[in-house]
């Protein structure tokens, strides 16, 4: 993933470096931004490259789909477990509320930044409810094993994103300085917070005997595989 990130700044997408037509392509001349006139222009960052924009679009889309999935998984679990095991209700409710907040945050960011949502959104909804309710029907431990598997994959996914956001979005300004744009800083802070909360959910699941689920390995490894496949799909479709 990190190796893929390293291309973000160096490869202009859609431009063949060897093309004889390259000379016709408009490129910012030296001092263009300064010539634009004022201190305000000088203090602005150079525009994001096409690859950087594509990465942000993809990151927001997959995060939105992932949080939608988490939201509906907890919804399915609560639907099944709240009557059979009311003692688990406050714990599940707390985790669900945090997922709803994450989902709402990425919904707002998707609209704000003109990112298309995943075309497979209805399938993510149905699949997530089925996953949450299905594991809860097996046992409360199986539901917690599901939470553990999902949060493990999501935590790793957020960590990969943070590495990329930290290393690939240092933008230059016309006055010669450089820095990370505030919208990227803001996104990084949100991803960090959500990553920490997801890992709290992982700890909560382990504390509630997720590892006693039978068959533990089969449940967790299958769900991890499904989550990785869903991440791959939501990034692209």
């Amino acid at each position: 993933m990190l190796a893929q990130c390293n291309f973000l700044k160096s490869v202009p997408v859609g431009v063949r470096a060897f093309s004889s037509l390259n000379a016709l392509r408009a490129t910012p001349k030296k001092g263009t931004l300064k010539a634009g006139g004022n201190a305000l222009q000088e203090s602005k960052f150079e525009p994001l490259s096409e690859a950087q924009r594509a990465y942000l679009d993809r990151a927001l889309r997959v995060n939105q789909a992932g949080e939608l999935g988490a939201n509906y998984i907890y919804q399915g679990q609560i639907f099944v477990l709240s009557r059979r095991h009311p003692e688990l209700r406050p714990t599940l409710q707390h985790m669900w509320e945090q997922e709803v907040f994450h989902h709402d945050t990425f919904n707002a960011l998707q609209i704000k930044h003109r990112v298309r949502p995943s075309l497979l959104t209805p399938f993510w909804k149905v699949g997530a409810v089925a996953m949450g309710a299905g594991t809860a029907l097996i046992s409360p431990e199986a539901a917690m094993a599901c939470t553990e598997a999902v949060e493990t994959v999501i935590g790793g996914h957020y960590n990969e994103q943070l590495r990329c956001l930290d290393s690939q979005f240092e933008q230059r300004k016309a006055d010669g300085t450089s820095g990370v744009p505030e919208e990227v800083q803001s996104l990084t802070a949100k991803v960090k917070l959500f990553r920490d909360q997801e890992l709290e959910h992982l700890d909560t699941a382990i504390k509630h005997d997720s590892r006693l689920a039978v068959p533990y390995m089969m449940i967790t490894e299958t769900i991890k595989g499904v989550c990785r496949l869903a991440i791959w799909g939501a990034e692209r479709i």
């Binding site: 960052f45 525009p47 704000k112 919208e183």
Partner: peptide, 24 residues
């Protein structure tokens, strides 16, 4: 930047692009 509707990439932080995509 943090509270209102923005355009990605937003005009508050970034200098205007020299071309209108997909024109070159």
């Amino acid at each position: 930047l943090l509270s209102t509707r923005l355009y990605h990439p937003n005009p508050i932080e970034y200098a205007n692009s020299t071309v209108v995509a997909p024109l070159t």
